[in-house]
Design a protein around this nucleic acid. Structure first.
Lengths: 258, 258
DNA sequence: TAGAATGGCTACTGGTGAGTATGGTCCAGA
DNA sequence: TCTGGACCATACTCACCAGTAGCCATTCTA
């Protein structure tokens, strides 16, 4: 039903997640002529994402979303067919970033662990984005079986992608042998959970969090014997903004128990 | 506002999580005389937990819960002051298992990593319990500021407990040096996420999942030298980037909790 | 300038569900 | 047998909110 209308902008959905910080309501400007239906539609979806993020899906009414955009509810319905679709679109906007990460990683010439790390970095950034909440916390029960099915399929695609990278890494020797299924669950869980605690204010960006998590997941809790030499090939840029607790000089390293 | 009601049973919450598999509605038996208010109250809470787990908080009406118990809504209100309190009690029932795990671990004579593992095992079991959903997915926005505050405090207590174990482990050499905060986030995230995918039917118990996760977290993704094949790829940079806050003796501030 | 799109608003409907008023029943103790 | 209290049901109220009907305003097009 939608999108049978003269597109002035790009015909492709212009990566809602990518475009950033268009926080102003375009209706104001619209008074001065800026009628781009697609832009407005995106603004609706982004406003919904923010509201869901702040108050939860069920505690957000379409009146709230409309008010945030300084319009009325029927206007929102002019761009979107119902509330459920709104949630769905937010979800898709969020997950699209992750899917793109996989496509990108696929073209990378590097050991699987490096490709996995690249994916995880994008993953964390997506979860920390304004669509993170919707992507992670949208409940099956709030969606029609149809849309719920779509979402499950996309989630499964991501899951399988991680497992595949793990298997490849085990195979090419860049990843310690492990159970790909459970490892993927652990990785995805840790990353998804970011949506529960992350608030932009706190100063860490999504990829900084990702780097911290990657460190955790790479070295593991069990003490490692000293590492002989450094291999500069996989040194990350490491923005000098020192993360809290990058590394502590561990003294009195008792050789691993057990 | 809540809990201004004649308590006939024990005043303390009697570990709802512990008692198990009392799936039958006690009202039937009540026909034959079994008026134990506390038991019925627990049944209400457990029924709520199951319903929330299956349909989500907002998609569950008190009529649903009442129907599951074969009573009517006012009966539910006889035992519980409102829907929010129900959610809160479910949460508490879930988290109580984890708090108990910490108490237990504290008395253990073992390196911190072992104590941490013991906690994580209980943690996973709790998240996989019927109260897992409530514990993990209860949204702040669905609760009054008062109850939300309580919940945050309890969550923070768990978080701090994990961090402390990590610090102790780093100090006693049983845990590889890491950033306790981010590591705790990663651990908790992976475990909490269990509530999103776990279904009892799938054959794994909570502690089996925990063991699988522990393996993942212990060894890490990076190949370990002990492993047959030589690690051909990148080692982690391990730049000795000095943090501003240098090192703080983990022991100096003794665990002076409570 | 007329008429068609297009975009938006006011003012509604209908359903749902939290919470309650009220009253009946059963039981224990006097 | 009476009385009070514990327990539970019927049958409501009330508020909120998703979604819609229908009308008005502005802009585009011929």
């Amino acid at each position: 039903m939608p999108s049978n209308r003269p597109k002035t902008g790009s015909p492709q959905a212009p990566s809602l997640a990518a475009r950033d910080a268009f926080t102003e309501s375009p209706w104001r400007a619209s008074r001065e002529r800026l009628r781009d239906r697609e832009i407005k539609r995106e603004a609706v979806i982004r406003a919904a994402a923010r509201a869901f993020n702040r108050k939860g899906y069920h505690n957000t009414s379409l009146d709230d979303i409309a008010a945030a955009l300084e319009v009325t509810k029927p206007t929102v319905y002019y761009y979107v067919s119902n509330k459920e679709q709104l949630l769905f679109e937010c979800f898709v906007a969020g997950i699209e970033g992750i899917r793109a990460a996989f496509r990108e990683a696929r073209s990378l010439e590097a050991p699987a662990r490096e490709r996995l790390k690249a994916v995880l970095r994008h993953y964390a950034a997506s979860v920390a984005s304004e669509f993170g909440w919707c992507m992670v916390r949208a409940e099956d029960q709030d969606l029609s079986p149809d849309m719920s099915g779509h979402i499950k399929a996309m989630k499964s695609e991501i899951d399988q992608g991680i497992r595949r990278l793990l298997r490849e890494g085990i195979h090419d020797g860049s990843i310690h042998p492990c159970d790909p299924k459970m490892t993927a669950f652990a990785l995805a869980g840790a990353l998804n959970w970011i949506a529960h605690w992350y608030r932009e204010s706190q100063g860490m960006t999504g990829s900084q969090i990702a780097d911290a998590f990657i460190t955790v997941f790479e070295s593991g809790l069990q003490p490692r014997p000293e590492i002989p030499h450094e291999d500069p090939t996989c040194r990350k840029p490491k923005s000098s903004s020192s993360r809290p607790g990058a590394r502590r000089s561990a003294r009195s390293r008792a050789p691993s128990r057990r």
